[in-house]
Design a protein around this nucleic acid. Structure first.
Lengths: 137, 137
DNA sequence: CGGGATCCGGCACGATACTG
DNA sequence: CAGTATCGTGCCGGATCCCG
């Protein structure tokens, strides 16, 4: 580190690329909605059914934000009952790979995280039981 | 339920690896705190100064959650004023690469996202201006 | 069919003060 | 030095109803 470097904080929200990405896809449904589009155009109602548990409000809100961020395109076909299809833009598709990398990490390691939590909560909770817990016999 | 596939929703929160990861590092400060530890052990006060804008409350809360999830270790040295150091566990380090991949995407493409927003908000806001906007000449 | 408008509860986050 | 305790607030997300 430089000599008198009074500049202490070198890690900031504003220049962190990861935080910027979170700004785009940290919402609860964003990733799921993107996955629903990874094979090409898909209709609104289709997504509503494919993404388990999402409500119309959240689907619309999520897809709108993604559209605003330039990751998603809307295609409107003015048939009798309107038909609206969504698809990823080139920018949106470019995000798929990095996301998959993280997703793979999650698949590979989430059980370890869950185990760590159980362990942490186990040693953390004791309010009683100073005696050995499982080793009953 | 199996045969005629009435099972429509194939994208769910519970089986999405990406969403699981978000559960771990989607909080505002998590990534920044992890970055503060990527070069090895670091003291509490050091992190407080390195991560711009973080409060003691949020640092403690963030680091505790990461510890609970098994990504971070705490080392306490009972000197006169207590000294506490934090570092990434093997699991925590393994998350570094996937995170960097996303971070790189953010660095490379965030400006495009910002531009898309400006554009979207521009065509979205008009309350007036039915006349062609940019094509002035 | 594909939304928009509204009400509401929970929780992430911030500011401040106190402690061993 | 390294936290904890408490209070307050925004806003994310769910439920419900309405619309063209």
């Amino acid at each position: 580190m430089a000599h008198s470097a009074t500049k202490r904080s070198d890690i900031t929200l504003s220049n962190c690329g990861y935080s910027k990405v979170l700004d785009i896809i940290s919402s609860k449904w964003a990733a799921l909605v993107i996955y629903a589009m990874e094979n090409g155009k898909i209709r609104y109602g289709q997504m509503l059914r494919r993404v388990e548990g999402i409500s119309k409000k959240m689907l619309t809100q999520t897809v709108r934000k993604l559209e605003r961020d330039g990751l998603v395109q809307r295609h409107i076909t003015p048939t009798v009952p309107v038909s609206v299809e969504y698809s990823l833009t080139a920018l949106g598709e470019s995000l798929l790979q990095p996301m998959k990398t993280l997703r793979q990490w999650g698949r590979d390691n989430y059980t370890q995280v869950v185990e760590a939590r159980v362990k942490y909560d186990f040693v953390g909770t004791p309010d009683s039981v100073p005696t050995s817990p499982i080793t009953s016999s």
